[in-house]
């Protein structure tokens, strides 16, 4: 059986501050495009249907589960993956509080926190809880992550 070559669509977007042009099938999800075409493997598949948050990235500054977004929907958008962060306070806090073990869930947690900082720079405990509930970590006890995030949202004098 030979399949006809699939129709490909060009998608132009900005990834971590760089203009990128990709050609994708209509059914390609953003997570696969990032990982397989752009080599940005920091975003992780943990379920590929929105349950775990490991694939979270920022789209125009807000967190999106990249397994639930089609690549063609990214046209004209600004995407930030974990590779686009360098020395962010959230990253530092995760290191300081040992908020990861295997690290597989970490990019998703960090991107979600970055989005939370954009949306609610002064988020309280309850807002943090509601936002981070969407990510799963199987290694840590969440206590470490809570400490790290709390630190990020504590006003520094």
């Amino acid at each position: 059986m030979t399949l006809p070559p699939p129709a490909m669509y060009p998608v132009a977007c900005e990834v971590n501050g760089e203009k990128r042009l990709v050609r994708v099938r209509a059914a390609d999800i953003l997570l696969s495009t990032l990982r397989d075409q752009l080599g940005l493997t920091g975003s992780k598949p943990g379920c590929e249907n929105g349950d775990c948050g490991a694939c979270t990235i920022l789209v125009d500054g807000l967190p999106v589960k990249s397994c639930l977004m089609l690549t063609v929907e990214a046209e004209g958008k600004q995407l930030t993956t974990i590779e686009g962060l360098k020395n962010s306070p959230v990253q530092h806090a995760f290191v300081r509080y040992q908020a990861f073990q295997c690290g597989y869930c970490t990019p998703g947690f960090i991107m979600n926190c970055e989005g939370l900082r954009n949306a609610h720079p002064h988020a309280d405990e309850e807002t943090i809880r509601v936002w981070l509930e969407s990510n799963i970590c199987r290694c840590t006890s969440y206590e470490e992550i809570q400490h790290a995030v709390r630190d990020v949202f504590t006003p520094k004098t």
């Binding site: 943990g46 249907n49 509930e133 990510n135 969440y142």
Partner: peptide, 17 residues
Amino acid sequence: NQIRTYKLIRFGEQPEY
């Protein structure tokens, strides 16, 4: 056989350790 039907502990449910 999905994480939405096979539940795991989530952020915010952790007790004091």
